Amino acid sequence: MLEKFERRRDRFNLFNSMDSSAVNLCFPLELPDFRPWCKEQGLAPFHVLLCAVLRATLQVENFRYRLLEGEVIRIDRLIPSFTVVNQHNDLNFAMFAWADDLREFVARGVAAREQASRMTQLNASYATLSPREAKEQVFITCIPWLAFTSIQHPSASLAQPDIPSFAWGKFRDGPHGRLEVPFSVQAHHGFVDGFHIHQLAQAIAGEIAGFMQASPGPGGSPSA
């Protein structure tokens, strides 16, 4: 299962020995403009993009590697989670169970957002995860008010930022009728290089295009 990783173990050993092994890139992510499609389908654009990002993460092998008790493992699923703002404008965390069907994924995400946004205390549901389950995440935040050009993600350990962190900002019109989103990726450089971040960006755009092509019309259940 880790054959591909073994080819880059020497790179992993190099970066893992550094004080900070993180690679962090911010770039304008170009996507098909799926906002009109989301409106037609009655789907929240954030949650559609969340689904596309998580599906793309599983497509790119290097984003599946994690460190557990000093050993490299490969995850096979993801537990969706993201940050929300509560009624006091404080950050909270939302988490929900994966669904392969896009419409069901969005419905679960919206329900998790509403639940977390009503809470005044920090949602500590992530603390109930086992150490192995905790690795089945990527950390996701959205800053829809700002077209940021850089971001520093918090990390529990500077030396081992093995769980990737993604952020995106304000949607804006891009060239040739496309959508442009400021997007940030932070990952362990022993696992992920700039090329893999490029692959992730391409996969996200492909997932969005696939949703739109598979659309059965309002009220249907696109699951491609």
Results as ranks from 00 to 15, higher is better:
191 F>Q: 14
75 I>C: 01
172 R>G: 10
83 T>H: 02
45 P>W: 03
143 I>Q: 09
118 R>Y: 00
158 L>P: 06
170 K>T: 03
62 N>D: 14
127 A>D: 09
80 P>D: 11
110 V>R: 12
164 P>S: 06
44 A>Q: 14
130 S>Q: 10
76 D>Q: 14
193 D>Y: 00
185 V>D: 03
20 S>M: 10
27 F>T: 15
22 A>T: 07
190 G>M: 08
38 C>S: 08
113 R>G: 05
62 N>G: 12
161 P>D: 09
11 R>W: 02
129 L>H: 05
146 L>H: 10
209 A>N: 06
195 F>Q: 15
22 A>N: 03
84 V>A: 06
211 F>L: 07
178 R>F: 01
183 F>V: 13
26 C>R: 11
71 E>P: 07
25 L>D: 09
165 S>D: 04
129 L>F: 05
152 Q>P: 05
8 R>W: 01
80 P>H: 10
127 A>M: 08
201 A>P: 04
53 V>Q: 13
207 E>A: 14
60 V>H: 04
144 P>F: 02
211 F>P: 03
160 Q>N: 13
45 P>T: 12
161 P>V: 08
121 Q>H: 11
105 F>Y: 11
151 I>G: 03
181 V>M: 09
48 V>M: 02
68 L>A: 09
138 V>C: 10
96 F>K: 13
16 N>D: 13
3 E>V: 13
82 F>N: 11
63 F>K: 12
201 A>V: 06
133 E>V: 07
76 D>Y: 04
13 N>L: 14
176 H>V: 11
53 V>H: 05
191 F>G: 13
152 Q>L: 14
156 A>P: 02
42 G>C: 06
84 V>E: 02
193 D>A: 10
208 I>T: 08
145 W>Q: 15
174 G>S: 09
42 G>I: 06
126 Y>M: 13
151 I>D: 01
183 F>Y: 05
33 D>G: 12
209 A>W: 00
155 S>E: 11
152 Q>S: 15
129 L>R: 06
158 L>Y: 04
85 V>W: 03
49 L>Y: 00
195 F>L: 15
130 S>K: 08
64 R>I: 04
189 H>W: 03
43 L>C: 03
19 D>L: 15
17 S>C: 11
41 Q>C: 07
75 I>R: 07
79 I>P: 01
116 A>C: 02
158 L>M: 13
220 G>W: 01
17 S>D: 12
100 D>H: 04
118 R>P: 00
41 Q>H: 05
65 Y>K: 14
220 G>Y: 00
131 P>A: 12
48 V>P: 01
5 F>P: 04
127 A>S: 12
120 T>Y: 01
23 V>H: 08
139 F>S: 13
31 L>P: 02
8 R>G: 08
133 E>N: 11
101 D>K: 13
159 A>V: 08
211 F>N: 07
148 F>P: 05
115 Q>G: 09
73 I>K: 15
149 T>L: 07
123 N>D: 12
